[in-house]
């Protein structure tokens, strides 16, 4: 009995924290999303009191905010771009990072510790700083166009930062350390004897990769993608600094809140962003665990 009690006491802080910063605000936001947004209020019925506080009755609640992701082309384009860039960036960063992660586990080389430490640098930067670095490197007068102009007379990647390609490059840049370190810790847990066993039992290098290494790696890849996808979906600073006209969902939430004053719409979009991100994450992890449970 005593031990149970202690256990409950031990998880208390986290439970309180979870309820206070996740559960309550989330449900509050879900509810806010049903309130007609201020822009609508001002256009239509006058529900505001003298001092500007809004009083909303039950029958005035609306689905319009939640539906705007379908009805409003601009908002839909934000969700589409968010999803597209998050998926592409997740795949590309896995592709780029699996080799280095492998090296970090299997090989010793001078400066390895330093390399790993440097890798964490982009993780410590906020999106706005990363956007700023992108402007410094591939902006209109970025380092790369200036140097190539000086060397060859042709500015390469001039103002690339402000295009979708530039946005993708900036995203990949801040996903590389996350992907590498995630993959590294997953690969570290491998049972390397399986690889040796396959080889000594006569499997060809191709067969070893196809039937042993790939299934072993898949859960690591899936769990890493879950992380990079979630971080990309939530990223907002990079897009804030780089995009001219296109939008991503987190940026749209900010815009609706601060320039259109449509707080309720931004609440609804936030809920949708959270649901999509958590949903994709949940299914990725379940897929990883179900299909390749033996590997980890």
């Amino acid at each position: 009995m005593m031990r149970h009690w202690l256990g409950a006491l031990y998880i208390m802080p986290l439970t309180v924290f979870f309820v206070a910063v996740m559960v309550y605000p989330f449900f509050n936001m879900v509810f806010q999303g049903f309130i007609p947004s201020q822009a609508m209020l001002e256009a239509g019925s006058a529900m505001s009191t003298a001092d500007g506080e809004y009083i909303v009755t039950w029958d005035e609640l609306t689905l319009a905010n939640y539906l705007s992701v379908f009805t409003d082309d601009h908002i839909r384009s934000g969700l589409t771009l968010s999803l597209a860039i998050s998926v592409i960036v997740s795949f590309v960063s896995i592709f780029l990072c699996i080799g280095p992660a492998w090296l970090l586990v299997r090989k010793e080389f001078p400066g390895k510790r330093m390399f790993r430490a440097i890798l964490t640098v982009p993780m410590a930067f906020s999106g706005i700083i990363i956007g700023f670095l992108a402007v410094i490197m591939i902006g209109r007068i970025g380092a790369i166009p200036l140097i190539t102009d000086w060397l060859f007379g042709i500015p390469v990647a001039e103002a690339l930062a402000y295009s979708l390609t530039g946005l993708g490059i900036a995203y990949i840049w801040f996903q590389i350390p996350r992907a590498t370190l995630n993959l590294e810790s997953a690969i570290r847990k491998f049972d390397w004897d399986l690889e040796s066993a396959a080889r000594s039992l006569g499997a060809s290098p191709f067969q070893t990769v196809r039937y042993v290494l790939l299934p072993l790696l898949t859960p690591a890849i899936v769990s890493t993608m879950a992380v990079t996808f979630a971080v990309s979906m939530g990223s907002f600073g990079v897009a804030l600094l780089l995009l001219k006209k296109a939008t991503v969902l987190p940026l749209e939430i900010y815009t609706q809140m601060y320039s259109t004053l449509a707080f309720e719409l931004s609440a609804a979009l936030s809920v949708q962003l959270a649901v999509v991100t958590v949903g994709v994450n949940y299914f990725l992890r379940r897929y990883g665990e179900r299909h390749y449970a033996f590997a980890s």
Binding site: I128, V135, G139, R140, I141, A159, Y162, L240, L241, L242, L243, K244, K245
Partner: peptide, 19 residues
């Protein structure tokens, strides 16, 4: 002809010549 519609201030980019 527009480079971008900045939401932060363009003071420093203009001073540097990015804008």
């Amino acid at each position: 002809n527009i480079l971008r519609y900045s939401r932060d201030t363009s003071y420093n980019p203009s001073l540097r010549g990015e804008i």
